[in-house]
Design a protein around this nucleic acid. Structure first.
Lengths: 360, 360
DNA sequence: CTGAAAGCGCTTACAG
DNA sequence: CTGAAAGCGCTTACAG
């Protein structure tokens, strides 16, 4: 275990001072009028000997770690992992590294992680906030730390937020179902106070009311949902059985849609003849399911790149001692119409046959 | 932007020395015989005032960062993201944070990331190695750094490795197809020198030879695969068209299977009647496809937990100045048989009906 | 054009 | 039982 070389070792080897070497390494040679010869000598020697500066020491001195703390609900969820991937790529190009951690939407876990990020002196935060961490985030903002929230946000605190038009997305989905002849439309969602979930419900309600239809909402507890995906599918199955007049279902999340499809498969219902299905949040595989599944797609690429852009802006503002301008960017969703929500004439006929047998 | 409080601020506030506070904070009160009163006073004050030690300073002093560098091929790939999730959870409990970065399997990218991890003084490494970084990893090992490789490894260097029995998995899959009456079995794989891919091919070959069948292998370039998933599906379509005697396909990766299913769907072939399909690497959604897809499942949970365990062992050994024992753990795969690879009489009939109206 | 020295916030060997 | 001081490896204000 040989010790790593420090800038002083280099200095000794080159008969220069650590100061000079530091200037060269940090691109301040011009500004500090270091001679061209010295610059060349230093660079060549660094390259040849493979000197690697200790970033921890640098961070302690400068107060900047070039680390961003990223909090998501679940890094194994394709929505979050694909955002994390793009965010990571983009920030990497700017010399940043990322800590990302999964909160499981748990308040205590999220608080703990924010504390750890803070102790580790991260330069900024990208957060899909769990419920109950409003105060903690407010602290960060008050300290002047760059914070960007995405997917959900707290309307009362002055962060930068990147979200989608959840209400409009759900509204669009219901209107699409109505336009395709469905009228008994259920909404399967989570029992959650989070703004993105409340907005999806709002959009569903608005569309149902505007079309003078009947509201049919199944709310599933979040913990149930996370701890036991199987039970979700059981819940949906029971619900569909009990409410067998339904002809369409809008699922409020990706996972719910997947569990719901499982339930529908088990019930032996045909999609879209017996039941139309639309998912909120697209999925790489929805186009491969048979039938392929209609979905309200989130603009994952835009969410990622805007999140990074806003964070970088905020880091720049902090650098220049300017105030970070809070604000919420709302992105549009796109309804991707596939087979699961469009009845063809041929299909309509088969529906009649099916409805009866389904009573047993 | 008020300055954060340091241990010396605490010392002043409590009329104690930084030394004493440090001992208390690091649980050395007993060992250093700090009086109970002082311990209580310090803890209470820390709690009340919310002091958070600067971990960067601590790292500089101790040489330990409590950060693990994790290199995967693509964090957005469900295989890697689910492993990352579990690894992160487990290490988190032990006070570690993780940098994870995606290499896209690119040599230069991986080398660069290892350099950055090194500069940041990470305590250990978890790596699904890209081709061409054998030397760089050997360096880390020689320096005595804990390194665990997973998914693939370099047989020549003395790391700890957690891999699966790729050869056995592919072998099992082919034998299963043969047992179900298929005999013209193709293997669609990547044109890759990586050990896990070579072993899958080996397993396929071994089974084909043992059954005296004909080898049929389509190799797709890795860059093509990554840069243009659509082109993969086109390639598979052309291949299946040209080799229309085939009655089964084994796909060597998750992504290949998904693209392949796309191709088969476009060709209008019925699975498993016209063509049986087996994927290597299971996928959350394979069970939901119609027909559901048979897969060689990797024990993701075991891979994750053993990777962590081996890393922790290595960190412990390093701590105690012991030698880190290299070695390769090979885990079994599990063949999950679903509809896509089993012809049944019933399936044959329902196929005909399904085309028309799916009446029971 | 270059260098000596202070200091970022910790931990720890040493002294008492 | 407690504290003063050195040092981890950098950067930078200051001096020349």
């Amino acid at each position: 275990l040989k010790k790593k070389r420090s800038i002083h070792d280099l200095a000794r080897e080159l008969n220069l001072s650590a100061t000079t070497i530091s200037f060269v390494l940090n691109g301040k040679a011009e500004e500090k009028r270091i001679s061209g010869d010295v610059v060349k000598k230093v660079n060549a020697h660094v390259k040849r000997t493979g000197y690697q500066p200790n970033q921890v020491a640098k961070s302690l001195r400068t107060g900047k770690t070039k680390i961003i703390g990223m909090l998501v609900e679940d890094i194994a969820d394709p929505f979050f992992s694909s955002i994390a991937r793009v965010v990571e790529e983009n920030l990497y190009k700017l010399g940043y590294k990322i800590f990302h951690s999964s909160t499981d939407n748990k308040t205590e876990r999220a608080k703990e992680l924010l504390r750890i990020f803070r102790e580790r002196q991260v330069d900024g935060y990208i957060i899909a906030p769990s419920p109950g961490i409003e105060e903690d985030i407010e602290w960060l903002v008050k300290e002047g730390k760059p914070v960007v929230l995405f997917d959900r946000y707290f309307p009362k605190i002055k962060t930068k937020n990147i979200v989608i038009d959840n209400e409009g997305g759900a509204f669009k989905a219901v209107m699409h179902l109505v336009a395709n002849g469905y009228s008994k439309i259920a909404f399967v969602t989570l029992d959650s106070d989070q703004v993105q979930m409340k907005d999806r419900l709002k959009g569903y309600n608005k569309a149902i009311v505007s079309k003078k239809l009947q509201k049919q909402v199944l709310q599933i507890g979040y913990s149930e949902y996370k701890n036991d995906p199987l039970s979700v599918s059981v819940r949906v199955r029971e619900y569909l059985n009990k409410n067998n007049m339904l002809d369409a279902v809008l699922f409020a999340t990706n996972y719910l849609a997947v569990s719901g499809l499982q339930a529908i498969k088990e019930l032996g219902l045909s999609i879209p003849e017996d039941l139309a299905v639309v998912g909120f949040d697209d999925n790489t595989h929805f186009s491969l399911f048979s039938p392929s599944v209609t979905a309200v797609a989130q603009p994952v690429g835009d969410i990622s790149s805007l999140t990074v852009k806003e964070l970088i802006d905020a880091l720049g503002a902090e650098e220049k001692q300017e105030k970070i301008k809070p604000g919420t960017i709302v992105l549009d969703t796109e309804l991707i119409v596939r087979e699961s929500s469009v009845r063809s004439e041929k299909n309509k006929i088969s529906l009649v046959n099916k409805k009866k047998s389904r009573v047993n």
